[in-house]
Amino acid sequence: MQETLFQYLLRLGDDSLILGQRLSEWCGHGPILEEDIALTNISLDLIGQATSILKYASEIENKGRDEDKLAFMRFENEYLNTLLVEQPNGHFGDTILRQFFFDAFRKPLYERLTQSKDKQLSAIAEKSLKETRYHLKHSSEWVIRLGDGTEESHDKIQKSVENLMRYTSELFYEDKVDLDLQQKGLVCSLKDVKQEWDKTVRAVFHEATLKFPDNNWSFDGGRQGRHSEHMGYILADMQYMQRAYPNMKW
């Protein structure tokens, strides 16, 4: 088995899976009907992407754990998603900003992964990129609307910025997994992705009249399986059926 590729796919797949699960919590709770539908549509795209990615991870691992087993039967420290995607939904502005930070990261990442020498990874990236463009358009427009909206909406989303910015540097974390695959031409450098992310965030913040926080305090650990306290609750919810009735089929 190609251990580093498996790890990489889990990182990619778990980001989609956990954010998809988080967004699905909005189902029936959106501030307006259109947004309820939009957030759950995006959730569906992300879970679909997670399915493709984890299915491929399962082939690489080749231990008989299919994509469902990977999604539902791992322990918390085996999930390699970033801390950003597991943060609570908070209010609508918190959710939108978290989504914007993530989409602004995923779009340039997928753009580069379409060039991967790994055919399946490049096919998944090509497919997912088309969906991600719509996600980024949606989230960035809302960040502008809320930031440049009323005094209250501005203050609220500015507070979201102070809170969530701390989780963004982890998106660009690189270790031997990335370096090994970069050398083989399978994945891209996250440094370029970071540059593009900065550009997008700056442009949107400018329109939205939002400020970057003064400090550059940041958290990490998700890529090694060290999660925030929120992760356990997500898994308790998500894995309930498989834990209560092992191997049950829907």
Binding site: E34, E35, I37, A38, N41, I42, L44, D45, K107, R133, Y134, L136, K137, H138, S140, T200, A203, V204, E207
Partner: peptide, 29 residues
């Protein structure tokens, strides 16, 4: 992707191009 106007889509009933986007996400993906 950023800052662009939504696509102009003619009405399938009356063919008018004076239409507006309500939401980028509809009843299905």
């Amino acid at each position: 992707v950023l800052f662009s106007e939504p696509t102009r889509v003619p009405c399938p009933k009356c063919d008018s191009t004076n239409t507006r986007m309500i939401s980028q996400f509809g009843s299905t993906a």
